Amino acid sequence: MDCVVDERKKPSTANKDFTHLLKIFSTWRDLKLEQLANLFLPLRLAQNDLQDHRPLFTRDWLKTVLLAPDAFGATNEETALVFKILINTGPRPSELLGTKLEHFVLEHEVPHIRVEEYSDGVIKRKLKTKWSEREIPLVGVSLDAAKRIVTMGGVQAYHLKADRWGALINKVMVERKLKETERHTPYSL
């Protein structure tokens, strides 16, 4: 509670920590075959409906700034293409950056990206929730960007590296003045 009040952390951040503790305790309890109540189960901080939510980009900003020729300057092409795929689709960047080439299904009546778990040797791609598995239709600038990614051999430089991609795209957005406000991020798409 001190972190939420004094350090201005969001209640949702604290609740996420409670969930992790709940899972750790449950795993330990199950391994030890203990019959203990999980004390972390009822711990939840109320969410304030007036919390700051990430703003969405306006349609005008998307058209005139983010999709302007040379908006991303000398930024590597893959970074900008991933951003453009996010514009019309809305997946988590980590979902898109976890795709393999065969997850881009472009020769289909409805071109799409398959978001799914997979195991590829030592790499095990897990999704955030069981409901995250889905097919995401591609249209407009997102379809064009996906086609280019496919011709490049799929996501490569940032495959399974969402944190690296996020750090770079946020830096580029600041340097190139691509943020509509200070609170806008790639998640604002």
Rank of each mutant, 00 (worst) to 15 (best):
A145V: 08
E135K: 12
V122P: 08
H159T: 13
V155S: 12
K130F: 01
M152Y: 10
I136V: 15
A146F: 07
L138I: 05
G154L: 08
K130D: 11
V139D: 06
V122C: 05
P137Y: 01
I123D: 09
K147Q: 15
D120P: 00
H159K: 13
G153S: 10
Y158M: 02
V122M: 12
W131S: 14
L138N: 02
G154D: 04
T151M: 09
E133V: 09
P137D: 08
V150F: 04
G153Q: 05
K124I: 01
T151R: 10
V139R: 14
R134A: 08
L127N: 01
K126S: 10
V150S: 01
V141A: 15
L127F: 03
I123F: 14
T129P: 01
S119H: 10
E135Q: 14
I136S: 07
A146P: 00
M152G: 02
T151C: 05
G140Y: 12
W131M: 12
K147F: 12
V150M: 04
V141G: 06
V141M: 11
M152A: 13
I136L: 13
G154K: 10
I149D: 03
K126P: 00
D144W: 05
G153W: 10
I136N: 04
P137Q: 05
T151L: 09
I123C: 04
Y158T: 07
V155Y: 01
W131A: 15
G121Q: 07
V155G: 07
